[in-house]
Design a protein around this nucleic acid. Sequence first.
RNA 1: GUCUCCUUCGUCUAGUGGUUAGGACAGUGGGUUUUCAUCCCGCCAACAGGGGUUCGACUCCCCUAGGAGAUACCA
Length: 493
Amino acid sequence: MGVRVRYAPSPTGLQHIGGIRTALFNYFFAKSKGGDFILRIEDTDRERFQEEALQDLYSTLNWLGIDWDEGPDRNGNYGPYVQSQRTELYREYARRLVESGQAYYCYCSSERLDDLREKQKKDKEDFGYDRKCRNLSDAEISRCKQENIKPVIRLKIPLEGETVFTDYLLGEIIKKNSDINPDPVLLKSDGYPTYHLANVIDDHFMNITHILRAQEWIPSGSLHVLLYKAFGWKPPVYCHLPMVMGSDGQKLSKRHGSTAVRDFKAKGYLPEAVLNYVSLIGWSFDDSREFFTKEELEKLFTLEKLNKAPGVFDYKKLEWFNGNYIRQKSDEQLAQILIPYLVRAGFVEENPSPEEHKIIDGLVPLVKERLKVLSDIKDISAFLFREIDEYNIEELIPKKLDASKTVEILENIKSVLDEIFESNEEKTEELFKKLAGKLDVKLGDLIMPLRTAVTGSRISPPITGSLKLLGMEKTAARINRVLDILKNEVVNG
RNA sequence: GUCUCCUUCGUCUAGUGGUUAGGACAGUGGGUUUUCAUCCCGCCAACAGGGGUUCGACUCCCCUAGGAGAUACCA
């Protein structure tokens, strides 16, 4: 049988960078091997379940273009692919473990467990369940039953010996059984399985061949292997992926900034940039290449090039990738994906009018190489859609020049405005140069007051294009407004 | 505390006994340019430490240190 891997998130929170990195690696591995990628919903924690998280999972994978061969909404021979729909299976197999003497009912209350944990912490003892119910007498059991306590089922971890499994990346992982989480819960008192039980049963029955998951799962790896052994099953190949860290070297989380993929989408990161960058955390192709499309990764990905060490998520590098992918778009494509951001900024209507479209089309080539994220469009194009709030006089007047000279400059520009709007870019530049010569100022000093007057900032897209987009009327109005300010400055300043 | 994993520039990484230790991001300097950005060129910057093995170690082994993760009726 071919490779079968799965991504099995729990719908308790939004899909984040670390999660989709795991999804991506599983997906790429499956595709590169001509195998199957399975999506499984691990919703056995009914307390923390969020409908929103489930929706977010689908929309995120969809956004990234990750498709699954089997899953909740696909036909597959191993369903259902939602764990909450498989509870009978888990209960049955938990029961079998009890019957074969490899697991037992535990009646300890969560209060007792909490107290136990606290005491262990205080006394600096080893943490973990004290196995109180492992050897309950029949009398005690029937007493608990009478009290109507809902038990959990715990696995009997062997008291001696060691458990070994081979990790594809890390090699042999040997652990003394006495160091394994003492008798972990398999079936919770609400009748749902814990992750440990459900994942082993599902991976077995779904014929999963490889498990690619983050290294934070290594400690439970031994436990899972023990479970396979208890059932008499063969464990899949394990490959624990290096973790994704924040800039402080700790596991990436909200503390480090946005980690939810949908936040990146909202901010204006392109799916191809996110996918490309995330694939490079813990994996590399060679000593130089770092641009990859999804399709290329589907062919090129290999476990051999995985890195063992954890990797820090670098927002700056993602941004750089994003800028590159933005510049790769055609003007038409970019205009299209920019529209929602312009709408959200309140600059254009949901369905832009032909006039608005014209402005957008003209805007795109002006901003294309200036955008790092799509939402940057708001600040960079505001001058086209909003009046300037307030002018900063300092920014209006070029260094080494004064207000009256600036007035002279702007008056001169104003007088040739007609000509400017009739000329193409090249002609306009000639015009500016001629004017600068006449006024005996540098070209930059001629343009800067104009730029600031028209855009409200010394930083703007190229001035000629900006003027044309704004239109002559507004341009003239803004120049006049600045002229008033400056003249006032000449008189009073 | 205990267990497990990890360790090349600030960051992501290439490297599989013999290299001036390569690339990218960031930083920094310069060029192009009407600002910003793009683009181009330069610079800065690493094998955690100590022992072995070997003619020769970033590469293999051991120890130390540091970091991380796990220690739930969460996954």
